[in-house]
């Protein structure tokens, strides 16, 4: 037998299986637009622990992961200060005194304040600002020429909301 009688059968079986298994893809369009989903402040009720706060903040500002050694040291220092706002503000001003930050310049902020405010809310609070929040910040930045990116970032990173997720 049978090599000769086996070959046609195999070919027929292959062709049949190919025909059966291939189906045309149907694209279904429900008419719904893609939407980016952000957190809402009302859902934030879990406090970040020191390690979470420090690691997230460091990565946020430098776009790099913090080393385990520096994380451990920073965690201990944060825990050793009673007023966490003092600790956070000191830590932030220490970061802002370092060279490896990746943050927008003051000129970039002032070129499009609205965009900066929205981006800052998303960057720190992982949500969009409400219209009132957006307008308050736009007005505050526009009316106070001495406000810098560093000041805005410090306020956000030291805010109560940034301590929660």
């Amino acid at each position: 037998m049978n090599m000769l009688s086996f070959k046609p059968l195999t070919i027929i079986a292959l062709i049949t299986s190919l025909l059966i298994s291939c189906t045309r893809e149907i694209n279904v369009d429900y008419g719904v637009n893609d939407v980016a989903i952000y957190e809402t402040k009302a859902q934030k009720h879990k406090a970040k622990n020191e390690a979470e706060y420090i690691a997230i903040l460091y990565t946020n500002l430098t776009q790099e992961a913090i080393s385990p050694n520096l994380l451990y040291q920073t965690q201990n220092v944060m825990y050793s200060i009673g007023d966490q706002n003092v600790a956070k503000e000191m830590l932030l001003s220490n970061y802002f005194n370092s060279q490896n930050l990746k943050i927008p310049s003051d000129v970039e902020m002032r070129l499009n304040v609205e965009q900066f405010v929205i981006a800052t809310y998303k960057r720190f609070l992982l949500r969009l600002p409400s219209e009132a929040e957006k307008q308050w910040f736009i007005r505050y930045i526009e009316n106070n020429s001495n406000v810098t990116v560093e000041m805005v970032y410090t306020a956000f990173a030291a805010s109560d909301e940034y301590g929660f997720y």
């Binding site: 402040k41 505050y140 001495n146 406000v147 000041m151 410090t154 306020a155 030291a158 109560d160 909301e161």
Partner: peptide, 16 residues
């Protein structure tokens, strides 16, 4: 420098 930081933080805290 501190005044604007505290003002903005205060606004955020009141909002939260």
């Amino acid at each position: 420098e501190l005044e604007p930081m505290y003002n903005m933080k205060s606004f955020l805290d009141q909002s939260f």
